[in-house]
Amino acid sequence: MTNEELTIKISALQPALVVEEGQEWLQFHVDNKDWLALAKQLKETAGLDFDYLFCLTCVDWKTHLSMVYHLSSTLHRHTIVIKIKLAYTDPVVETVSGIWRTAEFHEREVYEMFGVDFLHHPDLRLLILPDGWEGKNPMRKDFEDPVNMIKL
């Protein structure tokens, strides 16, 4: 499916989308509250079939966070990028681990590294950081570790 067709088809699912072109793949900026419904539709709508979430991450923009989902389809081989803007303090987003199960681990990583709280996540615990980790989220830009970080 070409980018134009994808744009039309996905925009029809969720009118509040903002489409951004110019990069390698289509980018959709989604509102936080619409995300879960859209994710379900993306996976289940015939012709889209985004069944392969191959990258899930978060970017700290110092003023806000943005979740980045790279979705692909093993059937049609098209790829899109979904972005969601989150608040800087106490960011909350719906989990998609019920839709793409790989999200369970990736979301746990984002949870501890960026402090994003995933609602309705089945097992939201620390994955990489040691149990009982106190302090800030390491991947945030304002994280400082005076002991282990070597400033060059």
């Binding site: 990258c55 991450t57 970017v59 790989t102 369970e104 990736h106």
Partner: peptide, 19 residues
């Protein structure tokens, strides 16, 4: 780089281990 994410294959593969 402002932010780099490495999507490592092992991480996703490991998530299937429990299943």
């Amino acid at each position: 780089p402002y932010r780099i994410k490495y999507r490592s294959p092992g991480f996703s593969n490991l998530s299937a281990l429990d299943h």
